[in-house]
Structures are given as C-alpha cells and as structure tokens.
C-alpha cells in the first residue's frame, strides 16, 4: 500500500477519511473497507480528496458504493476538496450530481 495514504479524523460529528496519492483498482477494496468501517461508527461520513492525485473507475466505484450505503443507512455522506484530474473524473462519471461535493472539509457541518 505505497500509493495511497489514508487518514481518519473527527470533525464535529463527521468522520472524515482523508485520501492522498493514487486510488486505483489495486487499493480500491482496501479503501472501501476503511470507509465502511468508519461509516459504522459515524452518522456522518466525509471523504476528503484534497491530497488525491489519481482516481480510476475502481476508485469511483468505491465512492459510489459508500454513497449508496450511506443513503441506505440514512446517513450523511459528502466529498470534499476534489480538484484537478480527480474532479475531472468525478464529473465524467456524473458523480458530482449524485453526491454532496464540498470545496473543503471545513465546510462540513
């Protein structure tokens, strides 16, 4: 797991997973597992993407699954700080229309 760094923080009552590096098919399952785990302990889950450089369809799938799960469990889910290539792929996938997108984690409430 060299390519991705995963950091979990607490902000207000949000659980925030900060991703940095590259999110691809190789580490996607691992990232999903961390997210699932975090969601179980929080009513609100945010994925912070500021440090993320790369995302593939596998990464999109991770975020989509988390969003679906949050919705199914009636929990809040948000994406923060997507930029550059990551934001481009999110938009290509139309994910920005399905999930709350914030410019940064400080906007969480």
């Amino acid at each position: 797991m060299e390519d991705i760094k995963l950091e979990i923080n607490q902000k207000d009552n949000w659980g925030v997973i900060s991703l940095a590096g590259r999110l691809d098919r190789v580490n996607a399952d691992e990232v999903y597992a961390s997210g699932e785990k975090e969601m179980s302990s929080h009513e609100k889950l945010a994925v912070e993407l500021t440090g993320l450089e790369y995302i593939s369809s596998a990464g999109i799938r991770v975020l989509l699954r988390l969003a679906k799960k949050a919705k199914a469990e009636n929990k809040s889910f948000a994406l923060c700080g997507a930029a550059g290539f990551v934001k481009e792929v999110l938009e290509d996938s139309n994910l920005d229309m399905l999930v709350t997108m914030l410019d940064s984690a400080s906007q969480l409430s």
Binding site: R61, L64, A67, K68, K71, S93, L98
Partner: peptide, 12 residues
C-alpha cells in the same frame, strides 16, 4: 439516474 438506480460498474 438516481443514486439508487446507478450501477456501480461499467464506467471503465
């Protein structure tokens, strides 16, 4: 489509 109906794959 809505989040509910959105398939998770097929995007590649």
């Amino acid at each position: 489509v809505d989040l509910d109906d959105r398939p998770i794959g097929g995007l590649g």
